[in-house]
């Protein structure tokens, strides 16, 4: 009995393993998410930020993508990615450097510098201690703390080395899960700085009070921000809330309040797969009327 059952169980487990490994999903990456011959490639560099005043004691990695078309005499647009390590990898869920290379080359988005930032970690002071993970504190908390960290601290440092736009119109912020609500929070708090938001499977739930946004959006005077929301019908339903319902509420509130928004409900769970595969379309929509988007509507 055992000899028959055990290999069967292992085979079943392996099946699950392989389907994950091979990324079997109805959402497949299109040509804009793959390297194409003749498309100039931007450069990605890795950096570390260890002297935050907004989040004292934190250490984090971040990456900067500079497109091949960048010309230091012309201000470039800016797009920030929360949980940046996941977005910047060419084999990650979104393959951002490849997508940016293709879309900038095709004139579907402006020349844009990508900044990919990981959440902070506060290492223990003594050996053997557990680090204090700051992701939830930075991403799930409402208020302008994270925006402050970006706007007053990290981005000005990057702005010393690169010619970045000084207009909100040229600045976007993107994130997944808690990074998704964080992207929205940054623009909600500082619409004077960020005008474009992309959220994959955003945690508009009660992790640290973020479930209030649909109510706030309906009552607050409309802010000049454009929002793309991606969500999956198999997403989380847990102690913090129900992700699909929360995103439905967000979309309904944005519609009610007259926002320029898009909402895509797929079938995935809490993963970046669907959002990642449609990133070229998301970016095309997001940047469609920017003055520096050659193939845009402007």
């Amino acid at each position: 009995m055992i000899r028959i059952q055990l290999p069967g169980a292992v085979a079943l487990l392996l099946l699950g393993f392989c389907s994950q490994l091979l990324g079997q999903s109805k959402y497949e990456y299109g040509p804009d998410s793959q390297r194409q011959d003749g498309v100039p490639q931007g450069k990605v560099t890795q950096h570390r930020w260890e002297n935050s005043k907004v989040f004292p004691g934190t250490q984090r990695d971040y990456w900067i993508y500079v497109p091949a078309q960048y010309d230091k005499t012309k201000p470039a647009s800016l797009m920030v990615f929360n949980d940046g390590g996941g977005y910047v990898r060419e084999k990650g869920h979104s393959r951002v450097p490849i997508v940016f290379d293709n879309l900038i080359h095709q004139g579907r988005m402006p020349v844009t510098i990508g900044v990919f930032i990981n959440p902070g970690v506060i290492p223990a002071e003594q050996p053997g201690g557990t680090p204090r993970r700051n992701r939830s504190f930075e991403y799930d908390s409402l208020g302008d703390q994270y925006a402050q960290f970006l706007i007053d601290e990290l981005l000005p440092a990057i702005g010393k080395d690169y010619n970045l736009t000084d207009s909100a119109e040229g600045r976007a912020i993107c994130g997944i899960s808690s990074g998704g609500i964080c992207a929205f929070t940054a623009a909600w708090e500082r619409p004077d700085y960020f005008s474009k938001v992309v959220s994959y499977i955003g945690s508009f739930t009660n992790i640290r009070g973020g479930h209030v946004y649909p109510a706030l959006i309906r009552k607050a005077e409309k802010k000049p921000i454009r929002v793309f929301l991606q969500e999956g019908s198999s997403d989380l339903d847990n102690l913090f809330g129900n992700w699909p319902l929360a995103n439905e509420q967000m979309a309904a509130a944005l519609k009610y309040a007259g926002y320029d928004y898009q909402f895509v409900m797929g079938t995935e769970g809490h993963s970046g797969r669907h959002g990642g595969t449609i990133l070229p379309e998301i970016l095309t929509w997001l940047w469609r009327d920017h003055p520096d988007t050659p193939q845009g509507s402007n």
Binding site: P56, G57, A124, Q126
Partner: peptide
């Protein structure tokens, strides 16, 4: 707070 070996505290949050 992070506890240092000498009993001082850092990174109040």
């Amino acid at each position: 707070f992070c506890i240092s070996a000498d009993g001082s505290l850092n990174h109040q949050q």
